Simulated assay, not measured.
Amino acid sequence: MSRSIEHNPGKQRFEWTEDGILSVLDYELQNGVMTIMHTGVPEALGGRGIAADLTRCALATARENGWAVRPLCSYAAAYMRRHPEYAGLLA
């Protein structure tokens, strides 16, 4: 991971601020399942790999905590399909 993504468990999201602009990955955690709801990277920051870093950090956190992952967010679902090393996390 090229960035130090912040995990904000109180808001159930992962955060990264670049050039004063916030990018987030929102999730819900219930019964040991992390449901990734949304990955939001503003257009001004697009193409920098921020969404990938947010997703990678969320998946690493899920793995460390023994959580399964349900990717409702289309970006997270596509990321998991492209990276089969995360297939074992799928709920």
Rank of each mutant, 00 (worst) to 15 (best):
L90W: 13
H7A: 15
R70N: 05
T35L: 06
I36F: 02
C57N: 10
Q30F: 09
T17M: 09
V33G: 03
G40Y: 12
E28R: 14
R56H: 12
M1W: 05
G88Y: 01
E15R: 11
P84T: 07
E6T: 14
V24F: 01
M37Y: 04
R82I: 03
R70I: 02
G10K: 09
K11F: 13
D53W: 07
C57P: 06
R13E: 12
L89W: 02
E18Q: 15
H83C: 00
A60F: 04
A52M: 08
L22F: 02
S74Q: 11
G32I: 00
A76T: 04
R3P: 01
S2P: 04
A60T: 11
K11H: 10
S4W: 00
Q30A: 15
I36D: 05
R13T: 04
R48N: 00
Q12Y: 14
R70T: 00
E43M: 02
G10T: 07
L72F: 12
G40P: 07
G40L: 14
G66I: 08
I21L: 02
A44Y: 03
D53Q: 11
G47N: 03
L29K: 09
V41H: 01
G46A: 06
R81C: 06
D19Y: 06
C73D: 10
I36Y: 01
T61I: 04
G20H: 05
R3C: 02
K11T: 12
R13K: 13
A76I: 04
E6Y: 09
G32Q: 12
W16T: 07
T61W: 06
A87P: 07
Y79R: 10
A62W: 03
G88E: 12
R3Q: 06
G40V: 14
R48Y: 00
L89A: 07
A91K: 14
L89K: 02
G20I: 12
A60E: 11
Q30G: 08
M80F: 05
H83L: 02
A68G: 14
